[in-house]
Design a protein around this nucleic acid. Structure first.
Lengths: 232, 232
DNA sequence: CGGATATCTTACAATTCCCTTACGCTACTT
DNA sequence: AAGTAGCGTAAGGGAATTGTAAGATATCCG
């Protein structure tokens, strides 16, 4: 909900890759796009995305090989893309351990919803569709991500969506310093086209609501020349 | 743990049956696969598997019939497979006593995780899968999932199927915030091809029926920028 | 102390999101 | 076969939120 899942897209056709990236980013995910299988393997050796969208037909190392490689060392969910609509492929894909299967040409909207579905299945606990997240409690501050409610000294305060996400991110990493660009990336899900000073304003509004004395913050502290951190 | 749970798979399509067997075995279960309903009934007459994975569309004896037969004499959990995502099937299936429901085409990994979930639920407590569900009571609101009736301050109100499902889901998780996509998934059972704003309209209709003042909701609250939650 | 840089604060405009209503479409009823 | 209830889509209006701009204030460093 706050730290965006990272999705690796392995697709050699530039136009499809671009559209896919666009839609996934718009849906709030972090996206890495790679054009060939060798690069994908290299990437996977050092990073662990939350999900892989994989074209079966690739130059060089082929999709099934990547699937085998991945399955051999992790549970990372895989959604396969393919131009062929033969049942044999589908079965083969599933058999190799794909979590879902999309046939080209596909609508980017559909892909996004499948990504969501697979992530929901794999991220949460399999049995209950509603996963409970941990409630954070500090000195006089309670943050409940399930209900998105915040209490300051027994008192409910109403935060907007952005304010809550911002506070929740900071509070989950006490004393960790984030600069404005990182916050834009992690809370807003973007790192371009938005003025970093926006973060400043949101911090201000947040302080107004949760700090006993907004001019002398107790929870959200300014780290001069760098950014902000949460003090528990 | 003494012996591995035994799972009966009733599925007439050979490729699907094979993949399913493969995955379940790899997950550590004993598996019996049968291709038609008559054979399944015969098998069930002399064996008692721990769980049955059942295709609804079968040649000969049909899936619902097997369900009825099973429910009449045991508590064996059932996971249904179906090619259709029709509302009637879904409702009928659950009504007959299925424990879970998987829509084809499905990923075998997903099926395995659902099998695990159902077994965890049923083996742990030995509770009956078709037992009466709990009636929910709030301030002036009574929700009876068994009769699917709802009362607002002693007064019966007639809800449509969707409205009831929506209300019941929200009310079972008080204060938990759901976004529109989650609701589509959990209430509609679909996560693609349906406009999320549909949820908005249904919430509106629901409020019209159960809220004293629909413009100032008391039970179903909007969480701006996120979704909705139930306030008990 | 004083300039430079970074942050704070406020007000305003743009945007996003939600509410509401109306309209076909489908499935079921009579 | 016509009528009806339920459902999903579309569109306009309005409200809450959010990003931006701009002046004020604080901090750093020479």
């Amino acid at each position: 909900m706050t730290t965006q899942p990272l999705i690796l897209v392995v697709e050699d056709e530039p136009s499809i890759a671009e559209v896919t990236r666009l839609y996934l980013q718009r849906a709030g995910y972090r996206v890495e796009v790679l054009g060939d299988g060798a690069a994908a393997l290299e990437y996977l050796a050092r990073e662990s995305p939350d999900l892989v969208v994989l074209d079966l037909m690739l130059p060089g190392v082929d999709g099934l090989e990547i699937t085998r490689w991945l399955r051999a060392r992790s549970e990372t969910p895989i959604i396969m893309l393919t131009a062929r609509r033969e049942e044999t492929d589908r079965v083969l894909g599933f058999e190799m351990g794909a979590d879902d299967y999309v046939v080209k040409p596909f609508s980017p909207r559909e892909l996004v919803s499948r990504v969501r579905a697979v992530l929901r299945r794999t991220q949460g606990t399999g049995s209950s569709p509603v996963q409970a997240q941990r409630v954070l409690e500090f000195d006089g501050l309670v943050i409940d991500p399930n209900t998105r409610q915040v209490q300051v000294r027994e008192e409910d305060v109403a935060l907007t969506a952005r304010e809550f996400d911002l506070l929740y991110l900071l509070a989950r990493h006490p004393r960790q310093v984030f600069n404005r660009d990182q916050l834009l990336d992690l809370v807003w899900g973007v790192n371009e086209f938005i003025d970093p000073s926006t973060v400043t304003v949101h911090v201000r509004r947040l302080r107004e609501k949760i700090e006993p004395d907004p001019s002398k913050p107790r929870y959200i502290l300014t780290v001069w020349g760098v950014g902000y951190k949460f003090e528990p």
